[in-house]
Amino acid sequence: MSRPSNRVLGTILIAAAAFGGTFLDAARQRIAHEPALQHTEALVERLRLSDIALFTEARYTRHLSQADLHSAFQDHPVALEHFPSGSMLPPPQTLLKRHEPLDREAAPSD
């Protein structure tokens, strides 16, 4: 092991083994987390939840999927969206793409 190449390749090999280890650990954790995920799924279904509680700071970030398209800007016209988590969310073009254009397809009511 005195050759420098042995030391270098040995280090790379150990790092590669650790890299492979992350995939094994991921598989182990996926199995371990499965019951909790199932419970969460069941809770969502039972309580009729629609969103994850990741950003609790504002209405439109707490219930992202329920917020209407302009709720982030509705405080007054041309209001700037001011909650930090808003900047973590995709920009309006994506917002528009996410919503089904049902309103454009529906026939006008009499």
């Binding site: 019951p35 909790a36 419970h39 969460t40 809770l43 969502v44 309580l47 939840l49 969103d51 994850i52 509680a53 990741l54 609790t56 707490r62």
Partner: peptide, 11 residues
């Protein structure tokens, strides 16, 4: 339950 915190933290 804590395991479902991602959806129920503030309920």
């Amino acid at each position: 339950p804590h395991e479902s915190e991602l959806v129920s933290a503030d309920l």
